[in-house]
């Protein structure tokens, strides 16, 4: 069939590079997501004031800030395509799989970028000490994978629906709910030196990311094309 002169990997990377380049020039999503994270973190740390916070609450705050920052920015790349009309150009030139995984990768990079900035700031401002670094990095990565897997499809839904803002959070939150509890649990372990980490939670997180990605990939064509 026509249009098979470049491989899947090339097409996916092409979508990713296009998004990164556009993002670098406009900072459309980065501004939204970083500023949201920064202001939320500032507000939280300001309201808490000085003094030690128990590990459990640290973990809760950490993921709540990250969840809502992500929800403020992860829909942008799809919403912008739909709003400006470039989505039509994309639909007429790219296979669905390339678009889905390109956006998936872009969102993952965006979220990991946010974490590189947010995590140190969080640890400093809230006086948190991580006792188990490898586990901490692992759980942050798994959590990000899960969030990106679920939200990429929801972002496409929002963009196609032609609505923005609050509805993204409304749709994404129930889907992300199963992530929140295991994430907080494992992160709590990371802040406490004397407790034992459960590998069950990590398995759940990994399974969630895989299920959400596969479901997103299978359902994406129904969202993207009429």
């Amino acid at each position: 069939m026509p249009g098979s002169k470049s491989s899947w990997a090339v097409k996916i990377v092409a979508v990713l590079v296009k998004d990164l380049r556009a993002e670098y020039r406009t900072r459309y999503a980065v501004n939204a997501i970083f500023l949201f994270a920064l202001t939320t973190l500032a507000a939280v740390s300001f309201s808490l004031g000085a003094g030690g916070i128990p590990g459990h609450y640290l973990a809760v705050l950490f993921w709540i800030i990250l969840f809502f920052s992500a929800l403020s920015g992860l829909a942008q790349s799809f919403v912008k395509e739909a709003e400006t009309g470039t989505a039509v150009s994309l639909k007429l030139n790219a296979a669905d799989d390339a678009v889905f995984f390109g956006k998936w990768l872009f969102n993952l990079i965006l979220l990991l970028g946010l974490e590189c900035f947010l995590v140190p700031l969080f640890l400093v401002l809230l006086n948190a000490d991580v006792a188990r670094w490898p586990l901490f990095l692992g759980v942050v990565l798994l959590g990000s994978l899960g969030m990106v897997s679920a939200t990429t499809l929801i972002a496409a839904v929002i963009a196609t629906a032609g609505v923005r803002g609050a509805l993204f959070s409304v749709l994404a939150l129930p889907i992300l709910l199963p992530l929140l509890v295991p994430l907080v649990r494992v992160t709590e372990y990371c802040f406490l030196a004397d407790s034992v980490a459960g590998s069950d939670e990590l398995t759940v997180l990994a399974a969630y990311a895989v299920v959400a990605t596969v479901v997103g990939w299978l359902l994406f064509p129904f969202v993207w094309r009429d």
């Binding site: 556009a22 009309g85 470039t86 039509v88 150009s89 007429l92």
Partner: peptide, 12 residues
């Protein structure tokens, strides 16, 4: 398709 509500990437 060439249409008024189709657009190209303005930032490229």
């Amino acid at each position: 398709l060439v249409a008024p509500d189709l657009a190209l990437y303005a930032e490229l």
